[in-house]
Amino acid sequence: MNEASRFARLPFLIIVALCFVQVAWWVLFQFREAESREQLEQLRLETLCSLASTSIAPATANTPNQRELFERELRLQSRFAELELTDGPGISVRPTAAAFAAIRKKTRHTLIMFTSEAIAFTVVILLGIVLLYGAVRRETLLRRQHESFLAGTTHEMRTPLATLRLGLQTLENVGTDSDQARGYLRRMVGQVDRLRLQIDNLLRTAAGDPHALNLLSGDLVSDLEEVREEFAPRAEARGVELSTSTPETPVTVRRDKAALQQALRNLVDNALKYSANGGVVRITLNIDEVNAVLRVRDDGPGVADEDAPLVFDRFYRGQAQAQGAGGTGLGLWVSRDTVTAHGGTIELSPSDTGACFELRLPLATDTT
């Protein structure tokens, strides 16, 4: 967790602590109030006993007739309904067992009510805090993604343009007939393709109906070869070997050629981006019983464990942003969206070195 995340969570932790303290104080106060009310009720009964003893008959009277009259007066006066005569000589009164039980029952019900209210208040407060924290966290994440997207897009647009400008200035000085000029032209073509890929990703993201595909049967081997040829100048300029292994026979799938090639470009572009100069990007195409299986593997730093579940999310860049790598966070999302629309799957496969993305497309059952 970075310092910004810790700082963002601190106010919520303080609010949670204050809420718990407030609820605990309120519960303690109500418990004490309930105990005080119970003591007051007991004191009321004791006062009532004294009043009954002095207002109905003297406590020293102990004849049977006087005792009978006293008991009758207790029953007749409703204010003394909670009192009864004591056993033994003399006439004295005491609270009934039912009166004490009623006081204890009332106190118990009061405590249960306060406890239930405290639990309900705590749940409501915590739910509100969780919802508020989630909203703030989502807003913060969206803001960071927006900033990252703008920074990545700016970088991805400016870098090819700067390379093109440098190449044109060089060609202006050396002409176009030398080997050096042809090398610059190849680099410029690669940068144009890179710029086009980013624009295509942006347009694909903004499309109103991204799944409106024109599916036709075609050879995936030839589609992949065209993509490899597009990236060959860029790979050569960085000294990266672009290794391709495909079947000798056609691999027929139903696909929208333009959309699928864009998905393939994103995978190859991602592999080249993270491969070190002089590295190797391996592209292999095989078939199983029902699928064409394409794997794009690089020898770069790989994908961090915390990034793995999120690499296909739109605008997500993860460690790429921290490492200063370019990108908009759209390429892998566009690839997955496109492959899914073709009825296929794409996933990050385990790899000892670098990253390996595996794409599966259903083989065509006809040639129309």
Rank of each mutant, 00 (worst) to 15 (best):
L203R: 11
L171M: 06
T176E: 10
R186S: 06
L164R: 01
I119K: 05
L161W: 06
L202A: 02
A120T: 14
R108M: 11
S78N: 13
P160A: 06
T154Q: 13
H155F: 13
T163W: 01
I112E: 12
Q169I: 08
V124D: 13
L168S: 11
L141Y: 12
T96G: 02
T154I: 06
L127N: 07
A101I: 01
H155A: 10
A162E: 15
R182V: 07
V130M: 09
S178L: 05
R108I: 11
A135R: 10
L166G: 07
D193S: 08
N173A: 15
L142K: 10
V130G: 01
P89T: 12
F121K: 01
L142R: 14
T159L: 12
T170V: 09
R194G: 02
E84R: 08
I112S: 11
R182E: 08
T115S: 12
L185Q: 11
E139Q: 15
M113K: 15
N201A: 05
T154A: 14
E156M: 10
A118V: 06
A99N: 08
E147Y: 08
D177E: 13
T163A: 12
D200K: 00
I199K: 06
S148W: 06
L164Q: 04
Q198R: 10
G134A: 09
N201S: 04
R104Y: 11
S78C: 12
L142E: 11
S178T: 06
I103L: 03
L111G: 01
A101D: 05
A81L: 12
L171S: 03
V174K: 04
A81Y: 08
R94Y: 07
A99W: 02
R104M: 10
I119L: 15
I125Y: 12
A162Q: 12
P89Q: 14
T170D: 04
